[in-house]
């Protein structure tokens, strides 16, 4: 593995996750944004167009208009649906555009094998689906994939982790270092920290051991 750092999307259609991570360090304190309402954002210009930083979320650099975004989610949905078909798995697939990002949601019975440990398989399929979109459109995609509500559930868990860290930082006035997390997970935590007065967060270290430090502001 090469070291993920700020580099460009491979011609093949790069994947964002890592670079987010890379960008995260510099922007962590700035990004309130997320799949949520495009809000205050990361110090501009971090992400190349079409990039999909989970963490360093840049506002809206996707040049894509809503129709293009929806088309991205359709391409990705076809790709994921094809996988389910081949595997003879049941699942309902929804394609949508949510807060400026193409999304594909799969819900259904036993989808755990598409989620994997701590979402590892979900991330892998998302990455592949982004490549599938890239191949067909020529643009990198910030597509988000969720399976069985995994991301929503995980986001809530991580919000609790973040709140706990905030409490400890405020109580002791000392920085708190969290466990290594994926780009998506870190973003969930950053979002909560950024929305809280008196604490700031930043990411440290290299993938896959990149982790968040929460400090008093």
């Amino acid at each position: 593995m090469t070291v993920p750092s700020v580099e460009d999307p491979p011609p093949g259609g790069a994947d964002p996750a890592e670079r987010d991570a890379a960008a995260a360090g510099s922007t962590a304190s700035g990004d309130t944004a997320d799949e949520g309402p495009a809000s205050a954002d990361a110090p501009a210009g971090e992400a190349a167009p079409g990039e999909a930083p989970e963490e360093a979320e840049a506002p809206d650099q996707d040049a894509a208009d809503p129709e293009e975004l929806f088309q991205q989610s359709e391409i990705a949905a076809d790709y994921v649906e094809g996988l389910l078909d081949v595997l003879d798995m049941d699942g309902d697939i929804d394609e949508l555009v949510s807060n400026g990002r193409p999304m594909v949601e799969v819900v259904g019975g036993d989808l755990q094998s598409l989620v994997g440990q701590r979402g590892a398989t979900l991330e892998a399929i998302q990455e592949l689906a982004r490549l599938a979109v890239f191949r067909q459109t020529g643009y990198p995609s910030r597509l988000l994939l969720d399976v069985g509500g995994y991301r929503t559930t995980r986001r809530n868990e991580l919000a609790a982790v973040a709140r706990n860290a905030i409490e400890r930082v405020k109580e002791h006035g000392q920085p708190v270092r969290l466990d290594p997390m994926s780009a998506f997970e870190r973003k969930c935590v950053h979002d909560v920290i950024n929305a809280t007065e008196g604490v700031v967060s930043e990411s440290e270290g290299e993938e896959p051991n990149r982790r968040i430090m929460v400090r008093p502001e």
Partner: peptide, 9 residues
């Protein structure tokens, strides 16, 4: 993929 990312996925 870059650094073997895609193969890894």
């Amino acid at each position: 993929g870059r650094g073997g990312r895609t193969a890894k996925a």
